[in-house]
Nucleic acid binder design. Sequence first.
DNA 1: ACGGGCTTGTGAAAGGGTGCACAAAGTGGG
DNA 2: CCCACTTTGTGCACCCTTTCACAAGCCCGT
Lengths: 231, 231
Amino acid sequence: MTSRTPRPRERGIPEATVARLPVYLRALQALQERGTPTVSSEALAEAAGVNSAKLRKDLSHLGSYGTRGVGYEVEHLVHQISRELGLTQDWAVAIVGIGNLGRALANYGGFGTRGFRIEALLDADPAMVGQRVASLEVGHIDSLEEVVGSRGVSIGVITTPAEAAQAVATRFVEAGVGSILNFAPVVLNVPDGVDVRKVDLSIELQILAFHAQRRAAGDGQVAAAPGLELT
Amino acid sequence: MTSRTPRPRERGIPEATVARLPVYLRALQALQERGTPTVSSEALAEAAGVNSAKLRKDLSHLGSYGTRGVGYEVEHLVHQISRELGLTQDWAVAIVGIGNLGRALANYGGFGTRGFRIEALLDADPAMVGQRVASLEVGHIDSLEEVVGSRGVSIGVITTPAEAAQAVATRFVEAGVGSILNFAPVVLNVPDGVDVRKVDLSIELQILAFHAQRRAAGDGQVAAAPGLELT
DNA sequence: ACGGGCTTGTGAAAGGGTGCACAAAGTGGG
DNA sequence: CCCACTTTGTGCACCCTTTCACAAGCCCGT
Ligand SMILES: NC(=O)c1ccc[n+]([C@@H]2O[C@H](COP(=O)([O-])OP(=O)(O)OC[C@H]3O[C@@H](n4cnc5c(N)ncnc54)[C@H](O)[C@@H]3O)[C@@H](O)[C@H]2O)c1
Ligand SMILES: NC(=O)c1ccc[n+]([C@@H]2O[C@H](COP(=O)([O-])OP(=O)(O)OC[C@H]3O[C@@H](n4cnc5c(N)ncnc54)[C@H](O)[C@@H]3O)[C@@H](O)[C@H]2O)c1
């Protein structure tokens, strides 16, 4: 049952692999710009900061695109990963909440270059509506449904205060947006089938603090023996 | 050997648990503000968006702070988690690269409230140095070592362009900073013992795109049966 | 004082992810 | 044409994480 069709992608890439593909892609694009034609799993893994066996296993989920004794053809791999990630098409993005963070995102040039087009900026503040940010005019939040529909928005970014985030998410979902990137520090409730990812800077800092504290606590002791205690 | 000392923390909290503690903490603080005295694992899990068994196992790593038949005392749990995460002390933070993103972070009020004090803003651009951002004067990057030493900075945030990030990280490390939060889209190379976390918005968008594409591809089919394929 | 009803804490099972180690497969030199 | 060398693709064992299911424990009403 496992043979007969030499089909490359098996329709079921592990989540952990998906999360690393963008990292590989970036490393590959850097190689591409430098004109490197092929790269070994060892070298690419080094550049991506992962184990080379992991890299090979990850890539094997896309198909057998390497050549034994040689490595991977950079150009080809860039194409394959891009296709797998859906970057060969453009995705229309809307940002809601044009404050400190929303403005920073809107002004950031790094998205447009690769597959993502910021199509709309929305805010509830009348003073904000109508202003130009990053060569887009900020629209009123009330036009969310209309904008999503007419411009084919499929990814919504939420940078409103925490209180407003759930309402915005719900409106996004009802307007047909299936992917949400949330910067507000709240747990969003969405129906099954809608994909939410959150970026939470406070959480990142708190995780750093946890490890920093642990390091500080261990500094007085011999680090090797984890059995010591002084209650 | 596992008894005798009723010691609460066993010195070894799983990484996955650490990453969720901040989420629980936030949910608990919301309950606290609303004056709720106790909460069940079921209710707290709901608020944090996780499974209740997972929540209980996570909390059990901190000690036995619940009461069977009742739940957890909100106040007490807030204190325990805060202590475990190292939020009972203040952490001095330095931000390097005061551009779009660095400015947004500096202006963000949400950090100072809980354990993190932004102590320094540094940039390489002479036009930027000397300006006031969020009631701090932007310093020159050359003073990094001095600032880290004199103000006790233990967490470094990097919001420079990608090209500059590695150099900044290295200087942070050599100045004694053991925790780095990196927003630049590069893999940082640091010695063992230094903790680096990265926040990469492009990667988040690409992961969303992957799932969106997969959803779109499956839409033509019956969603329930994952066995169908057409070449 | 005791029993009924909740809720915690945790064994145990199942599922994913990681990394080692090596056979298979390709390259290039002689 | 063959052999030595390089590098991929993957079986396997191990570890971490999640989830289920339930005994143990606590509260309150009677
Ligand atoms: N700025 C940061 O560095 C930072 C860091 C971590 C988290 N965050 C989170 O990101 C979010 C935004 O942060 P910020 O600093 O940009 O805040 P901000 O106050 O500067 O901006 C919020 C914007 O959202 C708009 N808004 C409010 N309600 C709205 C609604 N119902 N619909 C549409 N727009 C609405 C406001 O008018 C404002 O322009 C917050 O949830 C914050 O907690 C920000
Ligand atoms: N703005 C965003 O929304 C966004 C999103 C994703 C990723 N990023 C990443 O975050 C980083 C910053 O983005 P940005 O939009 O704020 O860029 P930016 O160009 O607005 O700001 C960068 C700042 O860093 C300073 N700088 C440059 N070299 C430096 C050095 N060697 N030492 C100290 N400071 C230096 C510059 O003077 C500038 O002020 C970039 O790596 C970018 O890829 C930003």
